[in-house]
Design a protein around this nucleic acid. Structure first.
Length: 270
DNA sequence: CTTTGGGCCTGGACGC
DNA sequence: TGCGTCCAGGCCCAAA
């Protein structure tokens, strides 16, 4: 369930270890995850220097000195662990799939029980096209006008629109529900109702864009530093409990949209 | 073209 | 205690 804030936390963990590091070894414990690893993954990585550790939506990007970018995705259950090289070969733990050894003596280990993750190599010039992502929600590239434009040509319910990575990069099932609650909008509502006939954002579109930004900003801030002790969600997985909005008193319900569960308060979300 | 639904995969929660 | 079943979710792709 790593969404943008969780992936950003991982990026910040990896950055001091990976950025500027030279890759001295790669061990693959299987031939792929959600899709096969590139044939030449090991050869392409060994000897390269990692120029930086970036994030785009839910993807982690490590551009290399070769002009190729190491593209990684955590899928549902992916995680990274950093170990120190020892004199004997590292014993992999269950669901360890890739080791990346660095000249510093650190080993970055990719572990992913469900194997929905991705480890891939993409030419720098093709990364954007390959990922096919909409704007970063925390950048100026994303705003009510951009959101409205996407809503205009979509008759889908708002929840699906928010989860569409071509519309906004980085929201998943949890933060989509949370953003809608924050904006007081029903996940069932048609995306097109946020837009005027001339394609301009209504107040609801402004509210939703603002909510997405505020929500993610808070979540990212919470990720850093100490483990989020209680990053409780307002609606996600809270069916049956009372809405936390002041003076609302509604009851959170769960519905299914596009095969995914959505949670919302029918009382204050319209 | 858009939109929907199934499949991938495992661990954990549940029922018997 | 040990089965079986179902569900969770991100993303891709086939089908409608």
């Amino acid at each position: 369930m790593p969404e943008l804030p969780e992936v950003e936390a991982v990026r910040r963990e990896l950055e001091p270890v990976m950025s500027g590091a030279r890759i001295t070894g790669v061990v693959l414990y299987r031939d792929g995850l959600r899709r096969p690893f590139p044939e030449n993954l090991r050869e392409e990585l060994v000897g390269q220097t990692v120029l930086s550790m970036d994030r785009r939506g839910k993807y982690l990007l490590a551009p290399l000195s070769s002009g190729t970018t190491l593209v990684m995705h955590l899928g549902m259950s992916g995680s990274f662990r950093i170990e120190r090289a020892r004199t004997t070969a590292r014993q992999p733990e269950k669901h360890d799939h890739v080791d990346i050894s660095l000249a510093s003596g650190s080993i970055v280990v990719f572990n992913d029980p469900r194997r929905f993750g991705v480890v891939d190599l993409v030419e720098n010039s093709e990364v954007g096209e390959r990922l096919g992502l909409g704007p970063e929600p925390l950048s100026d590239d994303f705003n009510a006008t951009v959101l409205a434009r996407a809503c205009l040509r979509s008759r889908a319910p708002l929840k699906s629109t928010l989860m569409d990575q071509h519309v906004i990069a980085g929201l998943g099932n949890i933060y989509a529900s949370e953003a809608l609650h924050r904006a007081r909008l029903s996940p069932r509502r048609r995306a097109s109702t946020l837009v005027t006939a001339s394609g301009r954002p209504r107040a609801s579109a402004v509210a939703l864009a603002d909510s997405v930004k505020a929500l993610l900003l808070e979540a990212v801030a919470r990720q850093t530093g100490h483990p989020s002790r209680d990053s409780r969600f307002r609606v996600y997985d809270r069916a049956g409990s009372t809405c936390t909005r002041r003076g609302c008193g509604g009851t959170i319900v769960r519905i299914v949209q596009g095969g995914r569960s959505s949670f919302f308060c029918p009382r204050c979300q319209r």
